[in-house]
């Protein structure tokens, strides 16, 4: 019944920036329908993984499979059509567009032909695509901001708008880069509600970079831990929390010699 193929498979990915190896022979899979967290200390390569998967930067070695399809060489623009969408660590909405127009940018991959581009989506409110964007805003409790210019909106609203925009592309794999960063507790809760609704109403798989471990614990059912571009642990949140190497990174316990590790590793 369920498709056993993983929604995302990284196969021995390497990425170097100059002399610095950001991602080092990294392999992991994301189970279809899971809500997987990608965690690790600053500089571990989490955002780089997102940039490689979406094609914003090319890989140096290895292969990327989304839904069984090799996207390694595909231009970034075409990947959204293969079920890939993302949000950004720092909100990247279009500041000169209204909220609803931003959401309509997410529809582009389904309505981007010459006929679609010349459709007068902004001329009357009953337009099919505009109605769909409005419905998505309503479902997310954001309809009162539809006509507002986004740069004037609260940060938490912008973060949720970015998720709504990404979901308009109807992705099968949604990459969220620190969705809760910079949010207060009320905003974080609103975001959790939104993501919970998205997960229950569609079969999208989430891959989430996040530092807030409470957020990860509440949302995710699988965790991959990166450090220096390598995978050091994976499993359920409880398993990962119990893993001594993870504890060492996050809490600095003295299983190895942390000071020495710091010196050797950071200079490597």
């Amino acid at each position: 019944m369920t498709n056993p193929q993983p929604i995302l498979r990284l196969d021995r990915i390497t990425k170097r920036f100059g002399g610095m190896t950001a991602i080092d022979d990294l392999s992991f899979t994301v189970r279809r329908g899971s809500r997987t967290a990608l965690i690790g200390p600053n500089g571990a390569g989490k955002t780089t993984v997102f940039n490689l998967v979406t094609g914003a930067v090319p890989v140096d070695a290895g292969q990327i499979f989304v839904d069984g399809r090799d996207l390694t060489q595909m231009p970034s623009r075409k990947r959204v059509r293969h079920g890939l969408a993302r949000s950004f660590q720092n909100v990247r909405l279009m500041p000169h567009l209204t909220a609803i127009e931003n959401v309509m940018v997410g529809q582009h991959c389904h309505n981007g032909g010459l006929f679609g581009v010349l459709q007068p989506v902004n001329l009357w409110p009953g337009n099919r695509w505009r109605a769909a964007a409005r419905a998505a805003l309503c479902e997310s409790g954001l309809e009162q901001y539809a006509a507002a210019t986004v740069k004037n909106l609260p940060y938490g609203v912008q973060k949720r708008l970015e998720v709504v925009r990404a979901m308009m592309a109807q992705p099968r794999l949604l990459l969220l880069d620190e969705p809760a960063a910079g949010l207060n507790s009320a905003e974080t809760e609103a975001l959790q509600v939104l993501l919970g609704r998205i997960c229950s109403s569609s079969d999208v798989t989430l891959l989430v970079v996040e530092h807030d471990m409470h957020f990860v614990g509440a949302l995710c059912d699988a965790v991959v831990v990166l450090d220096f571009g390598r995978k050091i642990a994976e499993g359920s949140p409880a398993e990962v929390r119990a893993d001594p190497r993870v504890q060492e990174i996050y809490l600095g316990t003295t299983i190895a010699e942390p000071v020495e590790r710091c010196h050797v590793a950071r200079s490597a």
């Binding site: 979406t54 094609g55 914003a56 970034s76 623009r77 075409k78 990947r79 959204v80 059509r81 969408a85 993302r86 950004f88 990247r92 279009m94 500041p95 000169h96 567009l97 127009e101 940018v105 997410g106 582009h108 991959c109 981007g112 925009r165 592309a169």
Partner: peptide, 16 residues
């Protein structure tokens, strides 16, 4: 306008 505001994101959203 999307291309004007953020070319990278517009590209990731599938805009040529």
């Amino acid at each position: 306008t999307a291309v004007h505001d953020d070319e990278r994101v517009a590209d990731l959203m599938g805009l040529n």
